[in-house]
């Protein structure tokens, strides 16, 4: 029986692992990837001690620090279900099953999907959730960015320099992201902004060949080879049902990182903690590990 299972290896999970290792807890850390959203962010300018560091390098630093301890990191493993059974937790993954006295959920957030026909079929066949990664493959092609917030505007800004033509499909009446970037896009000769518009399908044969867009009663077909989905993030907490969540699906925690389930803790962007920042997630991870350690210590299992 483990003392602790940490789910997620972003800033919160890795920091929790470092604290748990220093407390000599018997634990594992399970995660689909290492670094979470930090790995995908371009430059980080507000992590204390670093005036500027690329996200991927900050992740490498975190990992290097974690690996100074013999931390059992189970990478590439995805949690399917988390259940409480009497005084322990059972975590079922796509590979195996674990049992522990406590769990820290630090699984972060993931891209929200469009939920339209063609989205699944054309994933990586022209449709992507990572403009930073795949953007360069669309040089001189026509692309659509779906969304109107900051991440959509950033993607459009990046793509307008690479692609031939960029369509920005925004469901609201106005762009909601940073106004300086919105201005740049409005003035760009190769960017067309569709406000009050909704994507209704992704079309093509082998690869994406276009999208249909609905604006009021009008339906338009836009011939594009690339679709960049940037409509925000959702908490990666679908594997746990019996815990209190807020209206956004975030796990609710108190100032000790406790959830409403005894022995179950949560940290980072998967929680309702207001500031979604790398440094906040790291701090929350530390707190959750100390709380889990305390929980194991005071219970005579």
């Amino acid at each position: 029986m483990l003392d602790l299972i940490i789910i997620g290896a972003g800033p919160a999970g890795i920091t929790a692992a470092i604290y748990a290792a220093r407390k000599k807890m018997n634990f594992v850390i399970i995660s689909r990837d290492v670094g979470g959203q930090t790995a995908w962010s371009g430059g980080v300018e507000n992590y204390t001690g670093y005036q500027f560091i690329p996200g991927i390098e900050l992740v490498a630093k975190f990992e290097e620090h974690m690996k100074t301890f013999a931390v059992p990191l189970h990478e590439g493993e995805s949690v399917q279900e988390l259940m409480r059974q009497r005084d322990m937790f059972v975590v079922r993954t796509d590979k195996t099953e674990y049992q522990a006295r406590t769990v820290i959920v630090a699984s972060g957030k993931q891209s929200r999907e469009l939920g339209v026909p063609g989205e699944k079929e054309f994933r990586n066949k022209g449709l992507t959730y990572c403009a930073t990664c795949d953007g360069p493959l669309f040089a001189n092609k026509d692309v659509a960015v779906i969304g109107g917030g900051n991440s959509a505007l950033d993607a459009a800004l990046q793509l307008m320099r690479i692609a031939r033509r960029v369509y920005l499909i925004n469901i609201a009446a106005e762009l909601t992201g940073d106004s300086a970037i919105a201005e740049k896009l409005k003035n760009a000769s190769n960017v067309a902004i569709y406000n009050n518009a909704r994507i209704t399908s992704v079309n093509g044969a082998q690869m994406v060949a276009g999208i249909t867009v609905q604006k009021a009663a009008l339906v338009d077909f836009l011939p594009v080879q690339g679709v960049f989905v940037e409509i925000g993030l959702i908490p990666s907490a679908e594997f746990i049902r019996d815990v209190r969540k807020n209206e956004y699906g975030e796990i609710m925690v108190n100032c000790k990182s406790e959830t409403d389930v005894p022995g179950l803790f949560a940290a980072g962007d998967v929680t309702d903690v207001p500031a979604k920042q790398i440094i906040v997630a790291a701090g929350e991870g530390a707190k959750a590990a100390l709380s889990a350690f305390h929980y194991v210590a005071i219970h005579s299992f």
Partner: peptide, 10 residues
């Protein structure tokens, strides 16, 4: 790969 993709780096 592209220089900006984390899974490429990994």
């Amino acid at each position: 790969s592209t220089p900006t993709c984390p899974y490429c780096t990994r």
